[in-house]
């Protein structure tokens, strides 16, 4: 059974049936992407040892469901960089209001690369409590998120 949530599109876009990966704690952008980006890997395997929910999971072309991002203020640049390297998540869905580092990252990716990371925020705690790893996510341009 599917459930629908409504958020605010920060970077609008449409995603159809992509796989969710979920963290209930802050997503450390640098720590998560650094190792794979350094290796110039074709897929990002999360390298944040402090995040047991995501550690060693594939993040490329996935929908990351999170409260917000944390960590170094290089975070925005890292998000932009993984998008430029085409190993980025296809979307980031925030239960809270997007933070300044993630906002910078998705905006930079949208404007300075040929691809983008769809970003929707303010989806609420209910969204993050409901969505589970592996569920299929569909996102509409207006910020409607359908979880199957």
């Amino acid at each position: 059974m599917s459930k629908v949530f409504k958020g605010r599109p920060v970077v609008a876009g449409a995603i159809n049936g992509k796989e969710a990966v979920v963290t209930h704690t802050g997503f450390n952008t640098l720590a998560s992407f650094q190792k794979s980006a350094l290796k110039k890997a074709k897929q990002v395997i999360c390298s944040d040892q402090n995040n047991p929910e995501l550690y060693e999971k594939n993040l490329t072309d996935r929908v990351i469901c999170l409260p917000k991002t944390i960590g170094s203020t290089t975070g925005g640049m890292v998000l932009y960089s993984v998008c430029a390297l085409n190993i980025h998540p296809c979307a980031m869905l925030f239960s809270e209001t997007i933070d300044s580092l993630a906002a910078a990252g998705v905006v930079l990716a949208d404007i300075w690369t040929d691809s983008s990371i769809v970003a929707v925020d303010n989806l609420g705690d209910e969204f993050l409590n409901y969505v589970k790893d592996g569920m299929k996510i569909t996102v509409s341009e207006d910020g409607t998120v359908t979880v199957d």
Partner: peptide, 12 residues
């Protein structure tokens, strides 16, 4: 903040 010529940030 970016003072380092690290390869991971080559798009920057």
């Amino acid at each position: 903040v970016t003072s380092f010529g690290i390869s991971v940030l080559s798009p920057v």
